[in-house]
Each structure stands twice: as structure tokens, then as C-alpha cells.
């Protein structure tokens, strides 16, 4: 054929073909998405410290292991209350003349998704300890240590944020381990990562591949279906509590209190325990322990789930306390809500 004997025609045709396709699958959709999406009304732009933190996040290549996208599939529900939509990324703009818009969505989850990490883990102490050495709070973690983002000072000033690193992770450092400006910015950025609620009236996208059709099938086989699903307290504890209080319930000395043998956990009356889970706790800050975030509210745990977690805590690590029913939990939570309203 003539085309294969004429280099001008052949290469021009191939290039035009490729350019046309490129225009339709890349350039036009990209330009369209850039122009058609505005930030959600409730979302806030990053403040200067958080913007600095984002720069650290990019420079250290965090996106190699952490995604920032809640996909519209059931398995991603643990990372956010709704699937991410285009508007969530509308504030992500070109960084400066040298650097492109940051790639935040990521393509690998060696570590968990961070879309909603600000809600899931709002504790400064945890983040700092975790960044100094992830294994100090999550023993099985393979995340790198960012110890070089911390300073060692013989005498700390009143402005310094000290990090209470457990002895076996101090790497023979004798002075005070103090958070640098960079790492404080990074933590501020991480804490700013929260899913913005959709404005009322806007349809919330659904999670696909849910368990609905599975339930239908299981009810068909008579006799084998169980009326009420049982919640796995150990798994829920691992997902919501373990990163601070640890798998063995012993917490970390000087950072996160132990639940093993804890007065609150062993108390027959679960009132205080549930209140702490739902509203957070700062009663032991003077002892050096961190502030506990309202995990139950942040992670929107259901009363059944909280009951399962509490009962796991009450019956593990040698704890032997009364088991709590779902109804009790429900009652206490509704009381808490009422108090809030009356306040």
C-alpha cells in the first residue's frame, strides 16, 4: 500500500490519529473537569500551616502508599461516610511555577486511605508518635519512620511540643524529643483531611456492591439464616481503638492509657465508658496522656457496634466485667444527645 511507502503520509496519519484520540480521552475531559467543578459550599481552603503540611506530604512521597479517594464501593466505606465526588478535589490547584497540581488520589494502598483521616484520628499526640516511629503505636506497620522531622533539645521551651516516645523507640536519645515546624504542619494537614458533608438536597452517591443481594439469598435458604447480625468486637476494636490502646489493651505508657485493669472499663455502670467513647476525654492530660477524641461520634459507630467494642474491652486481657446490652448503650447515647441539646 502506498501509505507504507511514504513516510510523510504514514507518520502524519499516525500522529493525527493519536492526537485526536488524546484530545477526546485526556485533554477535553480533563479541561472539562477542571472548569465544571467548584468546591463544596461547606469546604474550607487550607490555612497557611496546612498548606505547608501538604507540601511536606508531597515532598516525602506519602502518596506512594496512601490514597485519597473513597471509591463508590462497599469495601471503601471504612474510609469515609460517602464516596468521593469531583467537587472534593476542586481546591487542588497547581502548586507553583515549578510544580504541577499534586496527585493525591494515589494508586496503591500499602497504608490506609487518608480522605477522612482528620475525622478518624484527630489526636495530635497519636500522629506525632506515629510519625516519629509508626511501630511505636502500630507494631505491625511497615511505614517509614520520619524521625528526622523531630528535634532533640536538652531544654525545651514552653512553645515546644514534646513527644512522649516509649523507651524502646527512643534510639538512645536522652534529651527531649520535640516536634519540628515541618511535622506540626504535616499533622495539621492530616487533621484537615475531612470529608465535607454534602449540602442538603444534593443526592448522596451510593456505595456499590453492597451486601443487599447477599442477604436476599441467605434468607432464601431456610434454617441457615440468622435473624440478627452479630458484631465482631475484636475486629471493631482493631479498626477503631487499637492504634492507640494497642492490641494487648495496655496502651502506651505516657501517651495512651491502658484499658487492661482500667477503672472505667471495669466499672459495672458503663455510663462513663460510653460517654468517653462518644464525647472524648481530656481528664488525664496532666499525667502526660493525650486527649481522647470522640471516636464513637467521629466514626459514626452504631450502638450495636459500641456494645460489641465495650464487651470486647470488658472481657479481654484479664478484664472481667459485666457485659453490656445494646439497649443500655442506646439509652445512654440518647441521654447524651439530650444533654447536648439542653446545653
Amino acid at each position: 500500500m502506498e501509505i507504507y511507502n511514504n513516510h510523510k503520509v504514514l507518520f502524519t496519519v499516525a500522529l493525527v490519529f493519536f492526537l485526536t484520540l488524546t484530545l477526546f480521552v485526556a485533554i477535553l475531559p480533563a479541561a472539562n473537569n477542571q472548569d465544571q467543578n467548584a468546591p463544596l459550599p461547606n469546604s474550607k481552603p487550607l490555612n497557611p500551616l496546612e498548606t505547608e503540611g501538604k507540601a511536606v506530604f508531597i515532598a516525602e512521597g506519602c502518596t506512594a502508599c496512601h490514597t485519597q479517594q473513597v471509591r463508590n464501593v462497599e469495601m471503601d466505606k471504612v474510609f469515609g461516610s460517602r464516596p468521593s465526588i469531583a467537587a472534593d478535589y476542586a481546591r487542588n490547584k497547581r502548586i507553583d511555577i515549578w510544580r504541577n497540581t499534586a496527585t493525591l488520589m494515589g494508586s496503591e494502598r500499602t497504608g490506609p486511605d487518608l480522605t477522612d483521616i482528620g475525622n478518624r484520628q484527630p489526636s495530635d499526640d497519636w500522629h506525632l508518635l506515629h510519625l516519629f516511629n509508626p511501630r511505636s503505636v502500630v507494631p505491625a506497620s511497615v511505614m517509614p519512620s520520619y524521625a528526622w522531622l523531630f528535634d532533640v533539645k536538652e531544654y525545651k521551651s514552653s512553645d515546644d511540643v514534646q513527644v512522649n516516645v516509649p523507651a524502646n523507640f527512643r534510639e538512645e536519645i536522652t534529651g527531649n524529643i520535640v516536634a519540628s515546624h515541618k511535622v506540626l504542619a504535616l499533622v495539621a494537614y492530616l487533621k484537615s483531611l475531612k470529608q465535607t458533608p454534602l449540602p442538603s438536597g444534593k443526592a448522596v452517591p451510593i456505595f456499590l456492591y453492597g451486601k443487599k443481594h447477599q442477604d436476599e439469598n441467605s434468607t432464601n435458604t431456610a434454617g441457615s439464616s440468622i435473624a440478627k447480625p452479630q458484631f465482631d468486637g475484636a475486629a471493631l476494636y482493631a479498626a477503631n481503638c487499637q492504634s492507640c490502646h494497642q492490641e494487648n489493651g495496655e496502651g502506651l505508657l505516657g501517651a495512651f492509657p491502658a484499658l487492661k485493669g482500667s477503672k472505667v472499663v471495669l466499672d459495672e455502670d458503663p455510663d462513663i465508658q460510653i460517654t468517653i467513647i462518644m464525647q472524648g476525654y481530656n481528664g488525664r492530660v496532666s499525667e502526660g496522656y493525650g486527649v481522647m477524641p470522640p471516636v464513637g461520634t467521629n466514626n459514626s459507630l452504631k450502638p450495636e457496634e459500641i456494645a460489641a467494642i465495650i464487651n470486647h474491652e470488658r472481657s479481654s486481657w484479664g478484664n472481667k466485667s459485666r457485659k453490656v446490652t445494646e439497649d443500655e448503650v442506646r439509652k445512654i447515647i440518647s441521654q447524651l444527645k439530650k444533654q447536648k441539646i439542653t446545653k
Binding site: 488524546t22 480521552v25 485526556a26 485533554i27 475531559p29 480533563a30 479541561a31 472539562n32 473537569n33 477542571q34 467543578n37 469531583a86 478535589y89 476542586a90 481546591r91 487542588n92 490547584k93 497547581r94 504541577n100 497540581t101 499534586a102 496527585t103 488520589m105
Partner: peptide, 16 residues
């Protein structure tokens, strides 16, 4: 080139 890379445009280009 920077003209189509803000917001989600970046992701579309990244995939490509």
C-alpha cells in the same frame, strides 16, 4: 502543560 491540570483534571491526565 498546566492548562487542564487543576482539580480532577490532574487525575484524568495522570491516568493518560
Amino acid at each position: 502543560l498546566p492548562w487542564w491540570q487543576n482539580g480532577l483534571g490532574e487525575t484524568v491526565v495522570q491516568g493518560y
